[in-house]
């Protein structure tokens, strides 16, 4: 007897009929867990196709849905603006497929929680928009032997590689170290058309389905480079570096304690700063915003269990239940911390 229900057999019939998947492959897909780190343009579409295929998902994102996301992040609709992305994505995906399990984490991905958030899944899909997070993911995945995809998109272009620790080059083998913040263009500064992350997200989903069901060839030891302006899809062979600091020497610099002192980070390209408390909190946001609304400079825009959006002296402040704050329009780290400390002690 197959562990699949009759409804599931019907739902997935078209991919069960596909000879390379079959019943066995579907059972594998339905048993699998994939973490999607960052549910923006890439993560939206990758997680949608994976949910439709019957894969269980762990969704991780630190941001809330904003109007300028809707041009390409297909999981969100107008009514989701102001909701944490991980929450809105889970709600919407569950409407597409109620038979899969979805876990959502409205959290910043940092050295303190990275292992906890990733360990236990079969595969990780890269939906991040920065190399800091990717290098941290690289550390976690190499340390624990979890395969993951590096994928990125901007403008009309995209890049991807399927990384299997021990078998393929890791991110350090490919790019050495994260490019200095500001040396890379971001979607905010260079722009992006929806189909670029769309194509890359679709390929990520296809890579994941092939890997989990066990057929075909993955983008291992290869770097895919695409440009939609002239429809060029090219594959560059890449090799593991025998002297790699991360995958050969197993030196996990991004997971190391040194990094743990960074409680304030600039969110690249967004003129925003994130401040997080030294210890994770569990705030009652309704109560807190009620109290805060008595402070004259603070205006409460909207409140839910998970997130409170306020303005302070004209700057937008997004406060999460865990105590994390995102400040839009702060001049520098110092100002960000000083504003954050008005809300509670960090």
């Amino acid at each position: 007897m197959s562990p699949l229900t009759e409804t599931e057999m019907k739902r997935y019939s078209r991919q069960i009929v596909y000879p390379e998947i079959g019943l066995k492959g579907q059972e594998k897909l339905s048993r699998s867990w994939v973490a999607v780190l960052g549910i923006g343009g890439l993560g939206s579409i990758a997680s949608l196709y994976l949910a439709l295929a019957g894969v269980n998902l762990r969704l991780i994102d630190r941001d809330i849905v904003e109007l300028n996301n809707l041009q390409r992040q297909i999981l969100y609709r107008e009514e989701d603006i102001g909701k944490p992305k991980a929450t809105a994505a889970k709600e919407n995906l569950q409407k597409w497929n109620s038979s899969i399990q979805i876990e959502s984490f409205v959290e910043d991905f940092n050295p303190d929680n990275a292992e906890e958030l990733i360990v236990g899944v079969d595969l990780v899909v890269d939906g991040t928009d920065n190399f800091e997070a990717r290098y941290l993911l690289n550390d976690v995945c190499v340390k624990h032997g979890i395969p993951f995809m590096y994928s990125a998109a901007i403008g009309t272009r995209g890049m991807m590689s399927f990384i299997v620790p021990g078998e393929t080059p890791c991110l350090t083998c490919l790019f050495t170290s994260p490019p200095r913040p500001g040396s890379l263009e971001t979607c905010e500064t260079a722009g992006v058309i929806g189909p670029s992350p769309g194509v890359m997200g679709v390929i990520e989903a296809a890579e994941a389905i092939k890997y989990l069901a066990g057929f075909g060839e993955n983008l291992k030891n290869k770097l895919l480079i695409i440009d939609l302006t002239d429809n060029s899809f090219e594959v560059v062979r890449v090799k593991k570096n025998p002297g790699c600091n991360t995958c050969a020497d197993r030196n996990f610099a991004f997971l190391s304690k040194k990094e743990r002192t960074r409680y304030v980070v600039a969110l690249c390209g967004r003129a925003s700063y994130q401040v997080r408390p030294k210890k994770k909190l569990n705030l009652n946001l309704t109560e807190l915003s009620h109290k805060l609304s008595r402070i004259p400079e603070i205006r409460v825009v909207r409140v839910s269990d998970e997130v409170a959006i306020m303005t302070y002296d004209g700057k937008e402040v997004t406060l999460f239940r865990s105590g994390r704050i995102i400040l839009k329009g702060a001049r520098d780290e110092k100002e960000a911390v000083s504003i954050a400390s008005r809300f509670f002690t960090y």
Binding site: C173, F175, T176, L184, N221, V236, K239, N241, C244
Partner: peptide
């Protein structure tokens, strides 16, 4: 080479 550029010789980044 610039931070945002990867130059590979036979599949290996020259930074390494």
């Amino acid at each position: 080479v610039r931070d945002n550029v990867v130059l590979m010789v036979n599949g290996h980044s020259i930074r390494l």
